[in-house]
Simulated scan of single mutants.
Amino acid sequence: MNWSLRACGRHGHVTYAPTEEALRGRLRADTALGEAWRCLRCGDFTLGEPHGSGPAADAPIVLRGKALRDATILRLLAVFRWAKGLLVLGAAFGIWRFRAHQNAIGLAFDEDLPLLQPLADKLGWNLEESGVVHTLRTVLAAETRTLTWIGLGLLVFGALLMTEGVGLWLLKRWGEYFAVVATSLFVPVEVYELVEKVTWLRVVILLVNLAAVLYILLSKRLFGLRGGRAAHEAERHETSLLEVETATLEATLSGHRHHHAPATAD
């Protein structure tokens, strides 16, 4: 997939007119329909006036190629975090509501459970030894203080997931660190749950989180890996169309000066 063309098709081209004449000439073309400028993202010429102008050093760094692919993956992770955060916040709200009506729900449970006994007998389901019934009774018997702390814990956890999603969606460096640290902290919990009982859902969640941590660590060069922040910024600049054209222009001029340099006498 050409990530640059895909982004331009969705968001439009990005053009810029540098004040440096030599570089400006490499990005501009005259056509029968008027002037055209090269898009800083996909490299194609597009008709019309440039979206911005000024020194080449002030031009925006437009994500293209591999950087665009990485941005798409990070934003998919952000959506995953938001979805998980909403579920956790929904659970916190449910506990808060349950806490306010715990006694009434407990009475209704005790009254309605015997009504299920005939159906359970036909299905061969022992209600008294059912894990689901046992869990419900444990929850119904929980102290108000315990429910309060659980609700607060879920609220904080949900807020952390939503914050992590914002950082990843905005492609912020702090969001990447936040995602790696926060996800790593919960990996031992997920491993413990998997040891307690193996389910496909738990396996998938663990693998997704491990893959996300490794991907962000290596691709974004966090904690000094693969050259750290300096190497990450250099990689971004290397993929910039203006940087590429500037380097090509300098190489051309250097070769031209070398070709016409006077020969030294022996």
Rank of each mutant, 00 (worst) to 15 (best):
P18E: 01
P18W: 00
A22H: 11
L23Q: 01
D30S: 07
D44I: 02
T46S: 09
E49Y: 09
S53Q: 07
A57S: 14
A57D: 13
G65N: 04
G65S: 03
K66Q: 14
D70N: 08
A71M: 02
R75W: 09
R75P: 09
L76D: 15
L77E: 05
L86C: 12
A92R: 07
F93Q: 13
L107M: 09
L107R: 08
K122R: 11
L127P: 01
E128P: 00
E129D: 15
E129P: 06
S130L: 10
R145W: 13
G151F: 01
L155S: 15
F157D: 14
T163V: 07
G165K: 03
L168T: 04
R173H: 15
W174G: 04
A179V: 09
A179K: 05
V181M: 12
V187N: 06
P188I: 07
V198K: 01
T199V: 01
R202D: 02
R202W: 01
V204M: 14
N209F: 11
V213F: 09
L214A: 06
L214G: 03
L214C: 11
F223M: 07
F223Y: 14
G228W: 13
E233H: 07
E235V: 03
E245W: 04
S254L: 13
G255I: 10
R257L: 09
H259R: 14
A261N: 06
A261W: 11
A261M: 15
D266Y: 14
